[in-house]
Design a binder for these strands. Structure first.
Lengths: 210, 210
DNA sequence: ATAAGTAGTGAATCATTATTCATTCTTTGT
DNA sequence: ACAAAGAATGAATAATGATTCACTACTTAT
């Protein structure tokens, strides 16, 4: 026999795959999924278009994976905010703020994840993504109900509403039409927009204005 | 000279245009914008594909117009619910219920208007559509604040959150993946899903659980 | 060095639809 | 009836990009 896949080769392939994903991510963060054509991704990753198909079954599969990765990054941040010590209500508020702040910090990617028109396969991922957020919130709300810091309610429904309220509030400002209108260089974490979103959400949850 | 456009001709043209719009509407209500190809629309309207371009500059223009019309129908219903006599809070609740009930009644159209991936031109209309709803709610909220039945708040922001919360709550049930899961033949107006959405929304607005 | 197997290449192909436009058909005024 | 103008037609074209695949280049084991 002759050639047998070796560790070195496996690494090299993994590296190419990684680079393709990274470049796709970059394209999306720069101009949305729309701007991420195979040709451009290939050029950016320094491979031929055909090579991409050795690593991914189709463009949609590649997109779905990139979407998942981007999503995971965001969801993890929110999960982190929810996992701290302390009062459920405060943690929820921090988590909501994290969500909104991060979106405004990386508006193109956020828009792609939340609202850009995408192919059905990717849209499926989007539904999962939103469910993932909702589930985090849902869990926290349940805890809150348990410990009586949040009034009894349909936790699942409320969490869905939270996600919707934030997403909707962000769609306008994130829209490509508004590109540049919001300064992404904002180092300050206190956007009044975010404050009023959170105000509504917390009241929806707790019935208490703050 | 000879031919000069006459009333009869004007009517005939208007009728063709109307039919094209109606057929497009039908296609969308049946299978979303995705399923509304020019060929199919033309066949359904009993005209040649080229004829469509005598009435509309492009497919996107046609879609945008159909979107506007479909939208207007929905928005009007909500506006109607808001225009009745009586307490602002009650009217808002009725309006929210109207929104959700109608969506569940015509799930494919609702999904197309709220969440189906569409071309940029149509997406623009969608943003307007959501703003239109929000503005109706915003106005009502202002009235409520005025008459002290609703606590003081950022009416614009709250209204956006309302739209988001409802839309998000509906996206799951309306998704084509869920097609048929919800019986559209529901003659009864009391879907528990709708109740819990509204419960969250009203509390977000008024701080009062009901 | 050689052979066998695998990865990479990218121009060519395919697929999908919207759109065009040369031609035909209708309407209208004389 | 005829000519002028417009409307309708729909097969052909265009445009966009994803995907393929015959070929080349590289890796490995002997």
């Amino acid at each position: 026999m002759a050639y047998r896949e070796t560790e070195k080769m496996r690494n090299r392939k993994a590296e190419a795959r990684r680079r393709i994903i990274e470049c796709t991510y970059g394209c999306v963060a720069g101009g949305g999924f729309r701007s991420a054509q195979i040709t451009r991704i290939a050029a950016c990753a320094g491979v031929a278009t055909g090579t991409i198909y050795r690593h991914f079954e189709s463009k949609e599969h590649l997109f779905a994976e990139v979407f998942r990765i981007a999503t995971q990054r965001e969801v993890d941040k929110v999960a982190e905010a929810l996992a701290t010590e302390g009062n459920v209500v405060t943690r929820l508020e921090t988590a909501l703020r994290q969500f909104a702040d991060r979106a405004l910090r990386g508006p193109v990617m956020a828009w792609s994840l939340i609202a850009e028109p995408v192919d059905p396969k990717v849209e499926e991922e989007r539904l999962k993504f939103r469910r993932a957020y909702a589930q985090l919130f849902e869990q926290a709300i349940r805890e809150g109900i348990e410990e009586d810091s949040v009034p009894d309610q349909d936790a699942r429904q409320s969490s869905t509403c939270l996600v919707g309220a934030i997403a909707e509030s962000l769609v306008g400002p994130l829209s490509p039409a508004q590109a540049g209108a919001t300064e992404p260089a904002e180092t300050n974490d206190h956007d009044p927009l975010v404050d009023s979103i959170i105000c509504f959400c917390m009241q929806g949850l707790t019935g208490t204005r703050r």
